[in-house]
């Protein structure tokens, strides 16, 4: 039986698509047959992050209209043949596909893939409902910011209402130095508030932008970045492996931090 996992967040721009692309690639590299499904109809991006945008011929909409077969719409990744993308239509709106149709598509994919990752659109309207309809598990991506955590909480409530019991939290774009200075919520803070199991912590990393520029997921890099390693670890944990969380604490001893500490210390006395 294949695992059907929706990647969702509520808020936009927190890293759903980057997470989907990297987890898909990481799982495929580990020998799993993976289909990544772009459920963001009208605003598709997953193809870009995977560097597959020029190879799209058909999309899910044509499959559902009977204009092509499912395997014709699937884009096989040349770097990693275990990975296939089912693209979303770009010229349609978010309700181009209904929850029932999404269930049908995923049921057909189940025959050929071990993992089906669905990249959900932002928001909690019809597009979100369509994306979660076939899912058995959910990865909730959030950043340690008030708006993202609030929206994640809302989404967790909706997933519960839709009877998706396995929910895992990914805290993305953590800035460990800011957490250490008490300027950002820690992973523990976020997890305590949302109260679902944590499956990964991805540090804020400039490599994410470089990797999207090139259309090469970070987990493919020869010299893995911290964010790439964190994402690879999530893929391993999804497979049930016990992987310790990366140590993201930063050495805190440069001249300026010492100076700042000195100032703060003296301020306490005055």
């Amino acid at each position: 039986m294949s695992r059907i996992i929706v990647v969702t967040s509520g808020k936009g721009g927190v890293g759903k698509t980057t997470t989907t692309a990297n987890l898909g690639m990481a799982l495929a590299r580990r020998g799993k047959r993976v289909a990544v499904v772009d459920a963001d109809f009208g605003l598709r991006n997953l193809d870009l992050l995977l560097g597959l945008e020029n190879r799209i011929v058909y999309t899910a909409v044509e499959v559902l209209a009977g204009e092509c077969r499912l395997d014709q719409a699937l884009v096989r990744d040349k770097r990693q043949p275990n990975l296939a993308l089912l693209p979303a239509a770009q010229n349609r709106t978010k309700d181009a596909v209904t929850p029932l149709q999404m269930k049908k598509l995923v049921a057909a994919l189940e025959k050929a893939f071990d993992f089906i990752l669905i990249d959900s659109p932002a928001g909690i309207e019809m597009g979100f409902q369509t994306a979660i309809a076939p899912a058995k598990e959910a990865l909730i991506v959030t950043t340690p910011e008030i708006a993202a955590v609030r929206d994640a909480d809302r989404v967790i409530g909706l997933l519960e209402a839709n009877d998706i019991k396995k929910k895992y939290l990914i805290v993305n774009r953590l800035k460990p130095a800011m957490v250490q200075d008490d300027l950002m919520m820690s992973v523990k803070d976020v997890q305590e508030i949302l109260a679902i199991p944590l499956i990964g912590v991805v540090p804020d990393d400039e490599k994410v932008i470089v990797s999207t520029n090139k259309g090469e997921p970070m987990v493919l890099a020869e010299k893995p970045s911290l964010a790439g390693m964190a994402l690879d670890n999530i893929a391993r944990r999804l497979e049930g492996e016990k992987v310790p969380f990366l140590d993201l604490t930063v050495p805190h001893d440069d001249f300026f931090t010492r100076l700042r500490k000195l100032f703060r210390g003296s301020s306490g006395k005055s």
Binding site: M184, D189, R264, S267, S270
Partner: peptide, 16 residues
């Protein structure tokens, strides 16, 4: 400057 630093609760606590 110092007083503001010492008396303010951290923004991390505030957001929580």
């Amino acid at each position: 400057l110092f007083q503001r630093h010492s008396t303010q609760t951290s923004s991390r606590e505030t957001v929580k």
